[in-house]
Nucleic acid binder design. Structure first.
Lengths: 193, 193
DNA sequence: AAAAGGCATTGATTTATGTCAATGAAAATG
DNA sequence: CATTTTCATTGACATAAATCAATGCCTTTT
């Protein structure tokens, strides 16, 4: 239980067995069936979720009912509406499962206690959020500066596992495109080779 | 000296006078003239810069010579090529001054020592990067889900000070648009009112 | 004060992307 | 196993954005 979570944690900051046991006290396991919500827009986000197994997506829905995918999360990734989690404001994102999933949940109170009692947790969180920030900045840079074909090729190179497990229309949504446009980008790429 | 830096620091984690003096040992002031580089693509980013005065931009330049602005930084903001700073890899961004500027620099070694010796610095950094992450996520969500007019209106509402001080073609660049398109977006908005 | 450069706007045109609709294949469901 | 659904692709067309070019207005420089 919590294997991947502690592997990641250990990669970032070394832990003794005892420390691991201490941290486990603050974690809650949760299973999610495909299509089940972890969070709905308007609710307050009560947890940060670490994915042990399966796949989730975070997204908004516009007035026309179209989904816009903000983030995917596979094994080893963390997903949440961080703004809502930290401020207690209603969430602006929905989060649900693309596949049956097993999660490790950290509640707000667990998060706060760990931060106070356990310096290594703060370091873990700092490194975690720093990595997420850098990844997001790269994604944004790609959007504003690269042509579509390169953006998509980059995506494939960076996240081959997402490309394999997630339907293409969701990747289109993640890229801010319609499914038809992504399909045409793909055919242009394969024509060029 | 360092007034805004310590005001921000104090807002996030309280500091005594002594702690402030201790941290000051690790900081370096730097002035930059308008158009002067803080960082050039290809060089390793040696510092994180906090803006005490003036304005900077971080950007990439594509094959055609067009600038794509990744970030602005006014007083109270922090700017860097964080990936390059943390890994020692060559920077992918350029950073230069839009106006004469006064900066507070934190070198890699200062950063590492502060992290080790001074838990409040780690907390400061964690809160700093968390805020930056949330802001970036909102920007990205806006790009993939909102029509241009709303994106621009949001930008104006969120950063009126940037809109005032920065030429519009740079805001267009920041939004991933041509200056002509932004101009037309603006005229459509004012026509609607 | 004159000249030069940077800047925002507008128009005409091209190119890229979105929309609507249809099809066939594949996957999920009962 | 049959029947729905979901999905990716393709075509025709509409809309949006980029490009190219010109203009006038500031601001900076000389």
């Amino acid at each position: 239980m919590y294997e991947i979570f502690f592997r990641k944690f250990n990669d970032r900051v070394g832990l003794t067995r005892e420390e691991e046991e201490l941290i486990k006290q603050f974690l809650t396991p949760k299973k999610l069936r495909k299509k089940q919500y972890l969070l709905q827009e308007g609710d307050v986000c009560k947890h940060v979720a670490f994915v042990e197994k399966g796949a989730l997506k975070a997204y908004t829905v516009d007035e026309g009912g179209t989904e816009h995918i903000v983030q995917f999360a596979l094994e080893g990734w963390t997903i949440s509406d961080l703004y809502s989690f930290l401020t207690g404001e209603p969430a602006t994102y929905n989060i649900d499962a693309l596949e049956d999933a097993e999660l490790v949940l950290i509640s707000k109170s667990a998060h706060e206690e760990l931060l106070q009692q356990f310096p290594k947790y703060e370091t873990y969180i700092r490194l975690q959020i720093t990595g997420a920030y850098i990844a997001l900045q790269k994604r944004l840079t790609s959007i504003i500066s690269q042509p579509l074909e390169e953006r998509y090729s980059n995506f494939l190179a960076l996240y081959p596992n997402i490309a394999q497990r997630v339907p293409q229309h969701m990747i289109a949504s993640y890229m801010g495109l319609t499914p038809e446009t992504l399909s045409r980008v793909r055919s242009r790429i394969s024509a060029r080779k």
